[in-house]
C-alpha cells in the first residue's frame, strides 16, 4: 500500500496532562494500513497512556485521533471497538472464572451483535463457538478451550488476550506488552503467533523486549517523557545515538 493511503490510525497534536504533569506531549503519529509498528521508550514514557487514549479508555486533554480517516477523538470505547480497533492489556485482563472458549466467544458475540439475545442458549450459537475455537487453535490452545482461565499458566493467558482481540476482527490492533511477565521459554510461542497474524491488520506493539521488537517491527517510534523522540526503520533506530542514550544505554529492560 502506498504511504499516501489513509492511515489506520493517526493522531495529531495529542496531549494528556494530569494537573501539572504532562504525560503525552503533542504526539503526531501514523499507523499505516497493515503496518508492523513498535512503540518503545523507557518506563514512564507514557506508552500505555498513549494506548489508552487511542482506545478511548482515557480521554485526551487536547489534539485529535483519526481512524481510517474518521475523527474518533470523542467516541466511546465501545464505538471505537465496533469500528475495528482492538487491543490487548499490559496486565492480563480476562474473565478469570470462565473457560477460555467463553473469553473469546464473548467478544465475537459483541461483534456479531447477539449479546442482547435472551432466549436461545449461548452454547447453541455454534458459529460463534466454532470461530472462538479456531482462534484458540491458532494459539495452540485447542486442548485448553474448556479450562477455566485462572487455572492456566500465565503465558497461555497472554495468548488468550491475543485470541480475544482477534475475535473482534480488528482493522487495527494495539498490543500492550504481549510478552510481559512471560518466562522466556514460553515467549517464543508468542513471537510465532505474532509473526502469523493476518497481514491486513495494522499492528502497533508496545514492548520492552528489544529482541522481539527488532524481529517483529518494520517501523519503530521512540517515546520519551510523553513526546516522540524519533521514528524510523529498525536499523535506523538501533544506530541512533539519542535512542541509545535514553533507552538502550540503560540496559534495555525495565
Amino acid at each position: 500500500m502506498s504511504a499516501l493511503a489513509t492511515p489506520a490510525l493517526e493522531t495529531q497534536m495529542l496531549c494528556k496532562a494530569f494537573g501539572a504533569l504532562t504525560v503525552a506531549d503533542d504526539i503526531n503519529f501514523r499507523l499505516e494500513q497493515g503496518a508492523r509498528h513498535a512503540l518503545i521508550g523507557p518506563n514512564g514514557a507514557g506508552k500505555t497512556t498513549f494506548v489508552n487514549m487511542l482506545t478511548g479508555a482515557l480521554p485526551s486533554s487536547s489534539g485529535r485521533i483519526f481512524m481510517n480517516g474518521e475523527d474518533i477523538t470523542t467516541m466511546s470505547q465501545a464505538a471505537r471497538t465496533q469500528r475495528g480497533l482492538g487491543r490487548t492489556f499490559q496486565i492480563t485482563s480476562l474473565f478469570r472464572s470462565l473457560p477460555a472458549l467463553d473469553n473469546v466467544a464473548m467478544g465475537i458475540a459483541e461483534r456479531e451483535g447477539v449479546a442482547l439475545r435472551m432466549w436461545k442458549p449461548a452454547s447453541g450459537y455454534s458459529a460463534i463457538r466454532d470461530e472462538a475455537m479456531s482462534h484458540l487453535e491458532k494459539m495452540g490452545l485447542r486442548d485448553e478451550a474448556l479450562t477455566v482461565v485462572r487455572d492456566l499458566p500465565y503465558g497461555k493467558q497472554r495468548l488468550i488476550e491475543i485470541a480475544i482481540a482477534l475475535g473482534l476482527k480488528p482493522k487495527a490492533l494495539l498490543l500492550d506488552e504481549p510478552a510481559a511477565g512471560v518466562p522466556s521459554i514460553e515467549s517464543g510461542r508468542i513471537l510465532d503467533v505474532l509473526a502469523e497474524l493476518p497481514k491486513d491488520i495494522a499492528i502497533l506493539i508496545i514492548e520492552h523486549d528489544m529482541e522481539l521488537v527488532f524481529r517483529f517491527a518494520e517501523r519503530i517510534t521512540v517515546l520519551v517523557q510523553g513526546a516522540v523522540l524519533t521514528e524510523g526503520a529498525p536499523d535506523q533506530i538501533a544506530n541512533d545515538q539519542r535512542v541509545r542514550d535514553v533507552y538502550l544505554g540503560e540496559g534495555g529492560h525495565d
Binding site: S93, L94, F95, R96, S97, L98, D102, A105, M106, A109, E110, V114, A115, L116, R117, M118, W119, K120, P121, A122, S123, Y125
Partner: peptide, 15 residues
C-alpha cells in the same frame, strides 16, 4: 441466564 445475554452479564460482573 444461559443465553448470550446471561453470559454477557457474567462478563460485566467479572471484568
Amino acid at each position: 441466564v444461559y443465553s448470550p445475554f446471561g453470559a454477557m452479564l457474567t462478563g460485566i460482573r467479572e471484568n
